[in-house]
Design a protein around this nucleic acid. Structure first.
Length: 223
DNA sequence: TACCAGGAGAAAA
DNA sequence: TTTTCTCATGGT
């Protein structure tokens, strides 16, 4: 993928959807919680779980750790996988408190912070990069299922590439631009979940004939 | 009713 | 090392 191609898709998405103002969350900590809860789940379900946490006045690492795990799981129920996510969120909070919280972690360089996040139970590459980009405002490109789907089918990424390879291709094409990465990922998600879903309709899609959901594309490239 | 959604870890091959 | 299975709710 050339820089020109990466920027052309960005422009098409931005022209279509406009600024997204991501991440939806009032504080860096809420963003981090949302990044964990949104794993394999749609955002509306995550919002319900976060509202439950706010109702418990528990949107804070130490207060989450003070909650019994079954009560935490009950609050997280709307986001799905609630038992799994309760364990993951507690593991993250334990690490977060142990490391001295946001202020201390903000002093770490991006690679050190990324490695530390990936060592936490329940934090994989996408979740770590969501946290780095949207909570810590680091220039890290987030790769998700929509990114793979859209760019594979646009022919700009080969099938079967690993997460790190895809991330590096975007970062090399675009340069270390936090604001751009922020908007780009948000636009990909907005586009993916509205226009270019697996069973979609893209007469008005901003990617036109190159849209991953375009029937002309489907006829030859669908797996 | 079946499929999908802003994944990750554990187990099996 | 790679692939498969499991976790689960809510909307379409």
């Amino acid at each position: 993928m050339t820089p020109q191609q990466a920027r052309a898709v960005y422009r098409a998405l931005y022209d279509c959807w406009g600024p997204q103002h991501w991440w939806p969350g009032d504080t860096p900590f809420e963003i981090m919680v949302g990044a964990i809860l949104t794993q394999n789940t749609n955002w509306s379900n995550v919002e319900r779980a976060i509202a439950n946490m706010k109702a418990l006045d528990a949107l804070d690492a130490e207060r989450i750790l003070a909650l019994p795990e079954d009560r935490l799981a009950e609050a997280l129920r709307p986001s799905g996988y609630f038992n799994v996510k309760a364990r993951r969120l507690r593991a993250f909070c334990a690490w977060y408190v142990q490391e001295g919280g946001f202020e201390h972690l903000s002093g770490l360089d991006t690679e050190t912070l990324r490695k530390a996040l990936l060592a936490v139970h329940g934090i994989g590459p996408e979740t770590a990069d969501d946290i780095l980009l949207y909570a810590f405002e680091r220039p890290v490109f987030v790769v998700d299922a929509y990114t793979r789907r859209i760019f594979n089918r646009l022919g700009l990424l080969e099938e079967g590439l690993g997460y790190e390879e895809i991330r590096q291709r975007f970062e090399q094409a675009l340069g270390p631009d936090m604001a751009c990465f922020n908007e780009y990922h948000a636009l990909i998600v907005q586009h993916g979940k509205t226009t270019c879903r697996p069973r979609p309709l893209c007469e008005t899609c901003c990617l036109g004939a190159d849209c991953p959901s375009n029937p002309l594309q489907d006829s030859g490239s669908e797996s």
